[in-house]
Design a protein around this nucleic acid. Structure first.
Lengths: 337, 337
DNA sequence: CCTGGCACTCGATGCTCCTGAGTGCCAAGT
DNA sequence: ACTTGGCACTCAGGAGCATCGAGTGCCAGG
């Protein structure tokens, strides 16, 4: 249905439009790309492409611009991920090396990604449900309050205040802490729920109420909450692009953790790069943006996702290359610690 | 030099311009405010005000708009902080009550402030140097690595990985932890440096190298780094205002922690509300914005600062009221935990 | 199936004219 | 000494209009 030249035309349109941000006409196309046919021929091809819905004319007497469908075809069949040069890889590496802790790694990653792609970068913290507990700490705040600190093997540290139903003395706390560490240490957080269920038996009866309070907070922490910890960076890059939906909507959406979770969460869990174009994001306010994302972590164990958000008019090959490269390095850095 | 009526005229100009975003002329002024004089009289007053640099004309045949100097006079002498109604206070309270932990308090505060003022909100985490240590935890990661966790009385939890010069066995860690907690517990972080200096004597000689590594990381953490932990929210509100300097510059500045620190850091440490208008912020990129900020914490002990950033054309009385109210409640909430 | 030619469309640009809000100034009034 | 009405002046913004040119669709011929 679409012969090779028509595909080449589509590719050329996408590339030109991405770099110039102006509708591209038949003459410009034959000039700037090595197409050995006349503009009229191209026009015929473009008419077909428009019929099929890959490109549109903004006005009658203007060139064509790609539609979401056009970008989709481009990404799927007409482009390949742009690999990074050795120098670029080295730059990435040095940018990430020397991070103090998880917060620092995530911060550096988001800055790096924003800088490389000149888009908005989004990085999700390593998912709690995929981490294992390394240590549980209980710090008494006062008679009826504990600070619960969970440390995971991905370096993530979560804290929560626990309101106790009654007074818990120092010895009991020590004991409870010992039990928790003994039973939870090294276990995936997904398993914690079942482990905790069987745990009250191992606690002195008079402390069961307090222990239950602690347990329920642990569960809340793991399940309900911080799963959705996401950092955004490079928002100023949005000013370069003009969105049909309006900049405001996009900024608002990017401030909603829940929206971002959906944005990243609906992607496949493969390590390879995923692209969602325009309306494919059924997230309100981000219908006019594209998302390029990938999972990061060691190959056998994806920890979470990261990616960039930008206008559909985006340099996909480069963005995909950057996302893939950064995901790899961030995964490595985290695996080392 | 400026009689009462001229001041009233300036106040009216500021109020009108803030609410309409259009230069205000002499006729509109007498109509909308109860000034019992003719437009011509107002024109004379305006000419004087312009001579003094309080207002300017964007074009020859347009009304006047306030200058930075005009806003300054307005804030200092012509307006008072708008107190919040009982209902509004209740709303604030319920919005903040029920926060889990410090992260949650800060997040809710920033959202609340952004929502109340319809501006960009900026909240600094409780300053480490003004907090006291409540607990120090050392978690072995592997033979030569420790995770150091500092918990402060403001609920802030800081983590850092410590690379040890040699192997440290379990017993030594327990001992080191005990020493640290015994010596540091309850002390202001500002005092920690001197305490740590005298500490090596209390450690077994063969562990001194490792202990020194831990100590130096503690110091680094407190002094060099996380002092500057700041959260920004409500960036989408920026799209409503048009900045002479360009939206991009403002967004970029707001992403720089260092810039934000300077922005808040140069303010007085009083609990009352501080306003910096336009070029008074000698921070690149924020010369066309105003900052309304206040310290929060209990009255005797300011913990950190929070505030809003917006166009100089800002509703100062309301913003000041919101900042003051939120600072108070956030201070209360933190004092309770 | 490709190509040159040609008529057509229509956004963008630049020009003029006009209007109206707003000013500054002056002379007269209180 | 201040206030006021009157008046000439300025100028941004919008409407109307002609022009230009990039780009198209279509057709007839190779």
């Amino acid at each position: 249905m679409l012969d090779d030249r028509k595909l080449a035309v589509l590719r050329a349109i996408v590339e030109d439009f991405v770099s110039t941000n102006e509708p591209v006409g038949s003459r410009a196309l034959v000039d700037r790309h090595g197409l050995d046919v006349s503009p009229a021929t191209i026009r015929n091809d473009m008419a077909v492409l428009e019929d099929q819905g890959y490109i549109v004319q903004p006005h009658t007497s203007a060139g064509r611009i790609p539609t979401d469908k056009g970008y989709r075809l481009f990404v799927d069949r007409l482009s390949s991920i742009k690999p990074f040069s050795r120098a670029e890889r080295r730059a990435i590496e040095t940018f990430l090396v020397g991070a103090y802790d998880l917060d620092d790694v995530v911060m550096r990653t988001v800055r790096l990604l924003a800088q490389l792609t000149r888009q908005v970068a989004v990085v999700q913290y390593p998912s709690l449900s995929k981490s294992a507990i390394r240590h549980v700490e209980l710090v008494p705040l006062n008679d009826t309050r504990l600070l619960l600190v969970l440390i995971t093997d991905t370096g993530r540290v979560e804290q929560r205040v626990v309101e106790l139903p009654g007074v818990l003395d120092e010895d009991s706390i020590v004991q409870l802490r010992a039990v928790l560490n003994a039973c939870l240490d090294g276990h995936k957080l997904a398993e914690v729920a079942t482990i905790l269920a069987g745990l009250p038996e191992r606690v002195e009866p008079r402390e069961r109420a307090s222990a239950a309070a602690v347990f329920s907070v642990i569960l809340e922490t793991l399940v309900e909450r911080h799963e959705e910890k996401i950092v955004v960076g490079g928002a100023s890059n949005l000013t370069a692009a003009d969105f049909s939906a309006g900049l405001r909507e996009v900024l608002e959406a990017l401030e909603e953790q829940v929206v971002l979770m959906r944005l990243l969460g609906e992607l496949d869990d493969q390590t390879s790069v995923t692209v969602r174009i325009g309306a494919e994001n059924d997230v309100l306010g981000l219908r006019s943006t594209s998302v390029v994302a990938a999972a990061y972590g060691s190959a056998d164990r994806p920890l979470a996702r990261l990616g960039v958000v930008g206008p559909t008019r985006m340099d996909y090959p480069t963005a995909m290359g950057a996302v893939r490269a950064v995901a790899r390095y961030t995964g490595q850095i985290l695996a080392e610690s």
